[in-house]
């Protein structure tokens, strides 16, 4: 989305895709995330919660 072109980012994403271990993959993403934070490829704002509202007619739904 930010139109970033970066060989290091591409390489890290490829490494993560090929890494079967969950912990090892998380470590790759952690390194990548810190790099992207430094690059500030976009400006993070907030994390919203998932919200749904329903009528009492659907009482068992939630």
């Amino acid at each position: 989305m930010a139109r970033i072109k970066d060989d290091y980012v591409d390489d890290m994403l490829e490494r993560a895709k090929e890494e079967p271990g969950q912990e090892e993959r998380a470590a790759i993403y952690n390194e990548l995330c810190r790099y992207l934070n430094e690059c500030m490829v976009y400006i993070p704002l907030y994390q919203s919660t998932v919200i749904r509202a329903c009528s009492e007619r659907l009482g068992g739904l939630m």
Binding site: V41, Y42, V50, A53, S55, G59
Partner: peptide, 20 residues
């Protein structure tokens, strides 16, 4: 008469810039 459900999600809202 209304039930509201709220839970943590994966949604990150951001301002995206064209870095080119």
């Amino acid at each position: 008469s209304i039930t509201v459900l709220e839970k943590e999600g994966t949604r990150l809202n951001f301002l995206t810039v064209n870095t080119e």
